[in-house]
């Protein structure tokens, strides 16, 4: 499968997927780490994709999402945002309802 097609399929099928630098076990960038720390607080299952594994991932991902920076968090196929937005949603207590939708839709 072409990489662009793979990315599209991953985003559309994973309830929660985080494109990041490094892995959730070992984030390689402060912004990616910020999102991992937030998600960890909710204890939700999510898939992580390390964009450092292949520079092409980042190029194709940004073409697909129309979002230039990493990390990028998707829930139910929809881009929620990068680190600033995810942290803001978390602080305003608006993130949990978004994450719950993903959990419910796969239950």
């Amino acid at each position: 499968m072409e990489l662009a097609e793979q990315i599209k399929q991953d985003i559309e099928t994973a309830p929660i997927i985080l494109y990041m630098k490094g892995t959730k076990a070992m984030p390689m960038c402060g912004f990616s780490n910020a999102v991992v720390q937030v998600l960890n607080q909710y204890g939700v299952e999510y898939r992580d994709v390390d964009v450092l594994a292949d520079p092409e991932i980042r190029v194709r991902l940004s073409e697909f999402s129309n979002w230039p920076t990493i990390p990028q968090l998707f829930v139910n196929g929809e881009l929620i945002g990068g680190a600033d937005i995810v942290v803001e949603l978390h602080e305003k207590e608006e993130l949990l309802p978004i994450l719950e939708k993903a959990v419910v839709s796969t239950a």
């Binding site: 129309n66 230039p68 881009l79 945002g81 937005i85």
Partner: peptide, 23 residues
């Protein structure tokens, strides 16, 4: 908020991800 950020990213153009590593 997503589209607000997109407008700023667009304004930064190619500088973002090249000279600007983080914003």
């Amino acid at each position: 908020r997503l589209n607000q950020h997109r407008l700023v990213y667009d304004a930064c153009g190619d500088h973002l991800t090249k000279e600007i590593h983080a914003l």
